[in-house]
Amino acid sequence: MTLRLAPAGLLAATLSLAACADLDPTTQRTMTGAAGGAAGGALIGAMAGNAGLGAAIGAAAGGTGGFVWDRHVQSRDRAFEQGVAAGRASPPR
């Protein structure tokens, strides 16, 4: 029985990753955070007695964390680009 489920699980994982190929970075980081949070929350919730509630809370926290991380990365990239532009605009020494 498990030998039949392994290819199906592998196919489902491959298709779900392929579906994320054309998403913008913000959506990718938010969804990655939500998925990781849901997995961690489900594990903690299973130990506490309610895996579904743990997964929901973990997904919300992980999605928020992924979104905040994306804003940080965008801010860092903007600062870098501003520095490059300022360096190009300054006269040579």
Rank of each mutant, 00 (worst) to 15 (best):
L3Q: 00
G9P: 05
G9Y: 01
L10T: 11
L10E: 09
L11T: 15
A13P: 05
A13F: 04
T14H: 10
T14Q: 14
A18F: 03
A18H: 13
C20F: 09
C20N: 14
A21T: 07
D22P: 00
D22W: 08
L23C: 10
D24R: 00
P25S: 15
T26N: 06
T26F: 01
T26W: 10
T27P: 08
T27C: 08
R29M: 15
R29F: 10
R29P: 00
M31S: 06
T32E: 05
A35V: 15
G37F: 02
G37L: 04
A38N: 02
A39F: 03
A39L: 15
G40W: 02
G40D: 09
G40A: 12
A42M: 14
L43P: 00
L43Q: 01
I44M: 09
I44G: 00
G45A: 12
A46Q: 07
M47P: 06
A48I: 12
G49H: 14
G49L: 15
N50G: 05
N50A: 07
G52Y: 11
G52S: 01
L53K: 11
G54D: 06
A55G: 05
A56Y: 05
G58K: 07
A59L: 12
A59N: 05
A59E: 12
A60P: 00
A60R: 13
A60S: 10
G62C: 02
G62L: 00
G63D: 10
T64G: 07
T64W: 06
G66F: 09
W69D: 04
W69M: 11
W69C: 11
D70A: 12
H72S: 13
H72Y: 12
V73Q: 12
V73C: 03
Q74D: 15
R76G: 06
R76A: 11
E81W: 14
V84H: 03
V84G: 04
V84F: 02
A85F: 03
G87R: 11
G87P: 04
R88M: 12
R88I: 15
S90P: 03
P91N: 03
P92I: 09
P92W: 06
R93N: 07
R93D: 09
